[in-house]
Structure formats: structure tokens, C-alpha cells
Write a protein that binds this DNA or RNA. Sequence first.
DNA 1: AGCACGCCGACT
DNA 2: GTCGGCGTGCTC
Length: 732
Amino acid sequence: LEQNEIHAAQIIVDLKVRNTDKVFDYIVPPELRAQMRVGLRVLVPFGTRTLEGYVVRYPVVSATSGLKPIISILDPEPFVTERELQVAEWMRDEYLCLFAHAVQCWLPPGTALRSSSQAVKMWQEEYRLLPGARAELDALKRAPRQREAVQMMLAQDGKATAGELRAAGFSTAVLEGLMQKGLAVKEKVRIKRDPWRHQSFTRTDHSLTPDQAVAVARITAALDSRGRFLLHGVTGSGKTLVYLHVIRAAIERGYSAIVLVPEISLTPQAVAEFKGWFGDRVAVLHSRLSISERADQWHAAADGGVQVVLGARSAVFAPLRNLGLIIIDEEQENAYKQEETPRYHTRDVAARRLSKNGVLVLGSATPSIESYTAAQQQQFELLRLPHRVDNSPLPPVEVVDMREELLAGNRSIFSRKLQLELHNCLTHGEQAVLFLNRRGFASFVLCRECGTAMGCRSCQVSLTFHEPNTLACHYCGARRALPQRCPTCGGVYLRPFGAGTQRVEQEVRKLYPRARVLRMDVDTTARKGAHEAIWQAFLHRQADILVGTQMVAKGLHFPGVTLVGVVSADTSLHFPDFRAAERTFQLLTQVAGRAGRGEKDGRVVIQTYTPDHYAVITAKEQNYEAFYEVEREFRKRANYPPFGSLARLLLTADDEEELARIAGRVGLACQGTGAEVVGPAPAPLSRLKDRYRWHILLKGEQRAVLAAAKAGIAAAGRSCRIIADVNPYSLL
DNA sequence: AGCACGCCGACT
DNA sequence: GTCGGCGTGCTC
């Protein structure tokens, strides 16, 4: 070994390519050794180029000969800790992503030079007066510009940024004069931008109900050790107040906390509530902030300036030190699954971050099957908030059997019951919400006489209708002709299904020409601020009926609404996805929770062709446990999560035939690890942006599934791109 | 990702 | 004879 090779560091380079996704050894030149630490960002020679990299181990003795030296260290402090790098390593293995992608999650927003064009300015030059400067003011009579500069700086805490001084007309000569005389120094300081600096917040407080108090006590008691809690609280049961009390307790003990909420719930009101309690000890991270604002919030957390980070999914990576608590509100939300690489699940990353110590709290009115199963297996302590804070009863839910409507000759998309309720609602001057899950592209085929949806026998998911008259399984790719008659009842009314929000809006206007109708869906909320505008308009009673998709179901509280109509529960129920029943239950439960939260009683009408489906029945009864029991058995039987692991390999290429050939080869390579290989099959979105898409599903035990996926990835050549998604939430 | 190396077709 | 096509392999 050469002397140099003893002082080596292991580096991962910032090149997001599979071939280079490994550690490279570099010599640490003597002048850098004193500063060298794990986690530092460095510049290294790589082939003919120079790249950014991150130190993942130091010091190491390298067995490789002919090492190149590290060129320079890029930041004074590491952006990632060793512990965070360990979690990144776990992410790489768990999600089969590149190490560089996993590490990137932990870096301040805008750090990546390569992938992000908008590198964020993090440092700025600041001039600061030295203590004696004020006394020397008189001595500057013959240097009026310098004197004015000192006065300006005195007026703002004895400092000013280079930009401010330049704007005020001071040249560098003036400032250099000041430095020469020993009156000021120039420093590099972190840029700080506080998006909330002009706002003030007040704290709202209520006393805890007995259930809330128990939850707070149990969670607080675990703060100094390791705790896992599932807070199962119905809509309106006051989960947030529990969070606030627990966070306060954590801060008092010197811990920091992360609160995660779905992006859509991160409203100004929600932010204000936390700001009211914790003031500038809270940083908020979400996508509406500019990259530089996000970077500032990130650094505030890293510097210890804040103890609480409130944010969406990616805030699980917030660089808080002495982290003692992570709260995931509405933990069942799909938004916690990242749908780009690295395709992590926030819940798993949070658990991993706190694997040694710290408390993880999951909160939900309708816990995910995964989490509730974990609670049943004693991995989580279950805490219940079964009552609404105001003790108002949940609204009555009525399920309308649309098969009977057809038999009675009603071919409208509204049942007689819903029409009646709408009429009543409008004549009393009250408001109604019509909800519709219009995830339009996949239409399933339903027997309108018996309500059976055509399904795949081997995958236990609904088949999707394709022109002309074909049924296809989006999991395994099986295809068959649309039968003439229903295999269950022999009926002949087999129809592709799916009416959109536009159609509903049109029908409403036709039926109630005098009603004022608003529509809220992806199309009407695309414009920035449109979401808020529609919401405000409806809140202020500028409309009578709001027609919308999922977004109206989430967390909105309209006191004037007394009627909620679910136009079709079937659309989400027969979505080609093994979580379809779970999603439907969650949605119906949420929607039901919307009605009657004002002074007047509310009512809910659910229309469906499958009133006997367990998701519909249990949602009507608002009986989570009953739903869980049935759903758990289905998951067990079909080996779906959490009783079996699932991974999806998505292959894309320009050439369709070549892709099919490669997919076949990759599918073969996946065999032999014990995982069940489903497909290859064309993906539901079989072509996107001129690229063809095929996928392969892997089912079985976690280890077998990961091994199979790895083998598949290795077998895909250069001519096709392959993406692994471990425990995917979307199979499009 | 880039960029070299390398082995087969139509050109000054 | 050579210029250049892009298949394959490497980057500490």
C-alpha cells in the first residue's frame, strides 16, 4: 500500500446512473484531512470530468491502486449525518433506488447541481460593524461616505448585506475603507427568508376530552424511550389537539418533532394553528414555497433554530437534530407514497429514522390496513378517540340501490331519493355537495341488473374495458372478449361504466336550472389559486351545489352543507387495484364526515349498484372494525400487502416489439427466487410521451420479491429503461 | 451520463 | 487506404 491510500475516503458521486451507483475511493490530500468528515460534499475527478460527491466513509484503507485525490470540500459543514446516510442506505436496499437518489432526499432543497437547474443561493456577503465602530463615528468626518455607511448599518443592528449597501449606493471602495480602519468585517452568512415574517398568530386552545387526555399521557410517557402509536379518531374527534400537546411535551424535554400532513391539508389555517402554538420554533416545508424559501426552512431546522417542522411527505427528511417525535396525520393517505424515484413510503422512512429511539404517532379516522394490522400485532399501541369533540352525532347515511332505479325505469344518474333530497335542500336554502370519484380513464364493466363487476379470477381485481368489446386485466395482462351475458345472473345489460364530473354538472343544471352550481376537479382547479377561490365562493354561499372529486372530500368544513350525495360509489370500488375497497371505504367515510358539521343536521346519500359490498355497508354504518375484518381476510387470501410483499417493474422503450421481447426476458430473469411473477403485461397506460410501457408484478415474501426485482433490473439492457416500485400504490 | 475504444461500410 | 457509424465498457 502506498502511504496515500491509507488516507482514503469512500465517495458516492452525484451521477444518477445505475452503473456508477457504488462507492469510489479517493485519496484525501493532507491539506483537507483536518476538515474531512462523513457527509461532506466534495468535488472529485471522475473519468475525464469533475463531479460532486458525498463522503460516506472516512477514513478507510483502500485496496484500489492508482487513486485520484479529492479536489476540494464544498461546504463548511456536512448536510447529512452518518445516521441519515444509514437510512439512505436502507432506502436504497428497500426501494431498489440509486444511493445518490436516496441521499438527495436528505440534502437541502436545491442542492443537486446536476438534476436541478435552479441552484439556490444560500450564502450572501454581509458587512458587520465591530464593537468600537459607533465611537469612531466622529473620526470619519473626512470620509462622509464611510460615515453614512456606518450610520446605515447602525440603524439595522450593526450590519447590512452587500446587496443592501450596493443598493444604497456604497461602492466597495467605501466598505473596504471601513474594513481597513478595523471598523467592519465582511462575512458570509446564510440567507434567511421567512415567508411568515409579516404575519402574527394567536394560539387557540381547548381543554382535552378524557380520551384526548389519555392519548396525550400515553404518548408523552414514551418520549424518552421508543414508542409506536396509532391514533384512531373519527372525523372531528380532535386529533390535532393531541398532536399539539404531545409536541409541546417533546419540546419541553429537549426533543424536536416532525409533523407530516398530506399536501392538500397543509392549508394556511393549519399552518396558523401550529404557528399560534409554537411561533418561530416552527418551520414549514411544502411545495408552494419557492426553492430558496424551502432551503431556508431546511437550514433553520439544521441549525437548531426551530424545534418543529410541519410539512408534507418530504418533510420526513427534515434535518432536525435530537429528533424525538414524528407525527403522521391522515396516515392512510396515498400522498405519503412518493411516486417518483426514490419511491419511498413516508411511514416506513419515519419508522426507520426512529428505529432506535423516538416516538412515531400515526393518526387516522380510517387507518390503512397496513397500520391497523401492525396495531393488531402489537407493533403499535392503539389509541382511540371514538367521539366527536362537540359530541354531535355522525349524520345518517342512506344507501340507494341503483339497480332498483333501473328496474323502476329511472335512467337518470340521480336516484329518486337523491333528487328529492336535493330538492328539499334547495328549497330550504341549504347547500349540497355532490361527490364523484371520476378517475375517468379506466372504465370497468358492470352488470346493471345484479351489480356484478367483471373481474380477473387470478388477480382479484376488476377488469378494464377496452375498445372494441374487450376486457383486460391490468395486473397480469389477460384479455378476453366482453361476454354477451353476465356470468353471475345472465343479465344482458353489461355496460362500461364511468360518468365524469362535467356530466354530473350538466345534469344538475338541467334538473335544477335555478340552482347555482360550482364544479371542483382537476380541470377547474388547474389555475393557481382556483382551488381557494372555489372554496371561498362556496363557503360564502355564492353557490348552492358543489360538484367535485376527491378534493371536496378532504378536510373541508362547510357549515351550510346539509346534504352530501355520492353519485357513484362504484367508480372507485371497481378501480383495477387491490386497494379499491379500502379507498372506497375511506372516501365514503370521509364524505359522510363532511355533512352536518354546522348547526343543522346533515344527511348523506350514497348511490351504488353494489349496495351489498362490504365497503359500502361498513361505511354506511361507520364501522371501521367491521370493514377491517373483511378486508384483512381478502388481503391474506390473495397475498396482498401487508400479508405479502409486492413490487412492480416498469419497463419503457421507444420500440414496441423490442420492449415486449425485453420484458419477456426480464420476466424470465425474475424467476427462481420464490416470488410469484405476474406478467409481463402492457401497463394500463401502455404508451406515454411516445414511449411504450410494460410492467411485471412480483408477489411473495419481501426478500424474495426484492431479489426477483434485482435480477430483473440486471437483465434489462441499455435499450430500455426499468423502474422498480416496491409496494406500489399506483399501477398505471 | 459522458467519453473512449473498437470493429465494419462508403468516400476524398 | 481512411472517416465515421454507434455497440460496449469504464469511470476510484
